[in-house]
Nucleic acid binder design. Structure first.
Lengths: 163, 163
DNA sequence: GCTGAAAGTCGGCACCT
DNA sequence: AGGTGCCGACTTTCAGC
């Protein structure tokens, strides 16, 4: 098992592989032929590289990015959570619950003053408020919750690696 | 100009539109024909809907998701920053600088104890350390920096809306 | 590991319901 | 609005270099 979530580099990458990844990162629906043109390779050679990158897990998937604002997800927040860690079994229970909440779009175990940092998305302030009060607050061992409501997203390049 | 970054809903969406978005969100490279099958529409009708969703900005793009660990980005951190806001012009300067740093993958202006929350990705602890000391610390008006190093990513659904 | 050709498949458009 | 049919373009496999 992979307890630490480590992923070792499984293949040798050359400059063309990096160009392929960079291009597909910016335009995931580019046709294989256009991609082949851009990296100066024949379509078949290009496709084989893309398949290899996919098979080795370097390309983990392709996704449409939707407009959260337009779809009604108007509020984002960063929430720091401290739990009572005197009960080790609460940790797993906490993570399982956190994972099941749709409002939690990302969750991290962190070093520092808090135990967890949660990234929250909700359809407005009332929905966020009731999430905190009725869901987060009721988790076992909850000790402290500190919310930072996002007023403006200044940079949004998560999921875009600077290769 | 759009000072608040608001995006109004520009079109009426029905159940099929939501299914299309959900499917493309999970598999951005699905062929139009397969997508049409899944939503029980003819390929041409399906393609027209997808184009409309793209044109109205509901689908904002398609992107390959790469494996950050395997590509050497081993360290993630949430960094809270407080700046001296007695000088209004420092705000824009700060944001501009923050945007130019590759290590900053996301940046938010937040309400609460801190002014900004930064999401950092670096190729290891030394790189992160030198980023904080040599870049962040030297920004004008910097008052306080509080780092939370990510020990484990428990949930990672940013960019996946629960429709 | 790349190229080129062949066969199946798809996207995009015109036209019709 | 959604469906059908067509043609050029694309994807994908495989033999050969």
């Amino acid at each position: 098992m992979d307890l630490l979530g480590e992923r070792k580099l499984r293949m040798q990458l050359d400059a063309i592989d990096f160009r392929i990844m960079t291009i597909l990162q910016a335009n995931g629906r580019l046709s294989n032929q256009d991609l082949a043109d851009k990296v100066a390779l024949s379509p078949s050679a290009c496709l084989r590289r893309v398949r290899t990158l996919e098979d080795n897990g370097l390309i983990r998937g392709y996704h449409a990015r939707l407009d959260a604002q337009q779809l009604g997800f108007e509020l984002e927040a960063i929430v720091h959570v401290t739990v009572d860690h005197s009960r080790p079994d609460w940790h797993d229970a906490f993570l399982q619950q956190v994972n099941s909440f749709d409002e939690v779009v990302a969750a991290y175990v962190v070093s520092g003053a808090s135990n967890y940092v949660l990234h929250i998305r909700a359809k407005g302030l009332p929905a966020f408020s009731s999430f905190v009060v009725e869901k987060l607050n009721k988790l076992p061992g909850m000790r402290d919750i500190c919310s930072y409501i996002v007023l403006k997203t200044v940079k949004d390049k998560l999921g875009e690696l600077p290769l």
